[in-house]
Design a protein around this nucleic acid. Structure first.
Length: 463
RNA sequence: GUCCCUAUCGUCUAGAGGCCUAGGACAAUACCCUUUCACGGUAUGAACCGGGGUUCGAAUCCCCGUGGGGACGCCA
């Protein structure tokens, strides 16, 4: 049997971190087993679905590199098929028309809630042998309900949570088609999973409660029931549930915040799944290792600190040209002119081991593109009269250096230190402030070398 | 209210009855490296939710609590 998995978001917003992880696991499972990964857009909620959201989801997946093999399929384009199946079910008696109005349903619900009962449809229009149905009211368009079994249990072996069993008594006859004839979510999913030959449904555990209904419909249809794997949710950094109002952001926000997609992927893979003590691994490795057995059944809290660490690891290992392009893009976005004659890749090489995001890298590279002035506070603290005098001496010595390489530059600094009878930091720190606008930097002789003679002397002149 | 899921360091987790004196990673702390800040290195502290069983033996299996989450729509 060839594995077929799917990611089925409803296009009502961006691709957030939870959705991304669901997509990642579905994708990885298909890849692991040489199967097919399908993208399906569940857009039957016409009021909330937008083409912009579809695009946002696809953009997010592209950024992460989660390519689908089939689709995107749109549920709105499969209406005829759903209606066909509904007709068939009506004919074979596994579904029936229900003329109960919304108002009546609301009243029923209110009544049940008042009695502290589980709100459910009471089956008044459910055809039963020897039962007399109410007379059809005039002017009411009926909905179609699924005739759910009333006895026995629905059970499945959930691939992450183990065996789950629910009594059919807990389930009511849910609506599969609205009064206007359009099919509902739980029904479309079933038909789609069936038609698309989905073998493994990997989705969020907010769908656990839908699963028994879906299995019952699948059975009524004579379809094969797929394997289910319900992923627990991801909580925010503060342990609170992620929601549109609280903490949920688009995966593209991570791009904007300076994260490398492979770091986000590695982090997500490790959130709720593990392979022994492995923390840092490539997607190739992940795909080889990935299995459903090692997914955690409980909710996981997002931890930005660890993501930052992973990001730093990936930045260290990343190609300089790529990092330079990313840093330039970010600086250009801030309106910084990056068309310097200086080789920015050398500056990137100096900083890539020290930063934990591409934005930090961009900030670090900034003074190599254009002059960045220190704040008055920093100047006042470090550019004292004594410091200025030392820098003047240093400028002279640097002007005289024959070959502009770090060892020679280091020698010039040391001579200055000796000439003024001070310690190294007394020269090195003001020098950093004068050249980069900040008191910290990598090894100062390296910085001097990369910055080049002209820029160095010019900026020393300006002190 | 009813049903379903869930519970190991602050966080992510390893753990499939003896390998556990509970391991790793992030974070924290200390020290080392260093012209600064980082990076890096070394070390330290830090957990099996509670109570009952089962068993020669339980973090691991069962039950009951408790905490957390989800579902109960003509939303998806």
């Amino acid at each position: 049997m060839t594995v077929r998995t799917r990611f089925a978001p409803s296009p009502t917003g961006f691709l957030h971190i939870g959705g991304a992880r669901t997509a990642l696991f579905s994708w990885a499972y298909a890849r692991r087993h040489g199967g097919t990964f399908i993208l399906r857009i569940e857009d039957t909620d016409v009021a909330r679905s937008t083409p912009e959201a579809v695009q946002a989801i696809i953009d997010g997946m592209n950024w992460l590199g989660l390519a689908h093999d089939e689709g995107p399929f749109y549920q709105m384009q499969r209406m005829d098929r759903y209606k066909e199946v509904i007709q068939q079910m009506l004919k074979d008696g596994s579904a029936y028309y229900c003329y109960t109005s919304k108002e009546e349903l609301d009243a029923l619900r209110a009544e049940q809630e008042a009695k502290k009962e589980k709100p459910r449809y009471d089956g008044r229009w459910r055809p039963e042998a020897g039962k007399t149905l109410p007379s059809v009211p005039a002017g009411v368009e009926p909905v179609v309900r699924f005739k759910n079994p009333t006895t026995g249990v629905v059970a499945w072996e959930d691939q992450v949570k183990g065996r789950i069993e629910i009594a059919n008594e807990e389930l009511d006859d849910f609506i599969i088609a609205r009064a206007d004839g359009t099919p509902t979510y739980n029904f479309c999913v079933v038909v789609d999973d069936w038609d698309m030959g989905i073998t493994h449904v990997i989705r969020g555990d907010d769908h656990v409660n839908n699963t028994p209904r879906q299995i019952n419909v699948l059975s009524a249809l004579g379809a094969t029931v797929p394997q289910y794997a319900h992923l627990s949710m991801i909580l925010g950094d503060d342990g609170q549930k992620l929601s549109k109002r609280h903490g949920a952001v688009s995966v593209m926000q991570y791009d904007e915040d300076g994260y490398l997609p492979e770091a986000v992927l590695n982090y997500l893979a490790r959130l709720g799944w593990s392979h022994g003590d492995e923390e840092l691994f490539s997607m190739e490795q992940f795909v080889q290792w990935f299995d459903l057995d090692h997914i955690t059944a409980s909710a996981a809290q997002f931890n930005t600190e660890k993501l930052n660490w992973l990001n730093a690891q990936y930045i260290k290992a990343a190609d300089n040209a790529r990092l330079t392009a990313e840093a330039k893009k970010r600086l250009a976005g801030q309106g910084v002119d990056t068309s310097t004659a200086l080789d920015l890749e050398r500056a990137v090489a100096l900083y890539k081991e020290r930063v934990s995001s591409l934005n930090e890298l961009a900030d670090a590279i900034h003074p190599f593109c254009v002059t960045v002035h220190a704040s008055e506070e920093v100047r006042a603290q470090h550019l004292t009269e004594a410091a200025k005098a030392a820098l003047a001496t240093l400028a002279e010595k640097l002007a005289a250096v024959s070959e502009w390489v770090a060892p020679n530059l280091s020698a010039a600094i040391k001579e200055t230190v000796a000439a003024h009878g001070v310690k190294m930091p007394a020269v090195a720190i003001p020098l950093r402030v004068a050249l980069l606008g900040q008191p910290q930097s990598p090894s100062i002789d390296q910085v001097l070398e990369v910055l080049g003679r002209e820029r160095v002397l010019e900026r020393l002149q300006a002190v």
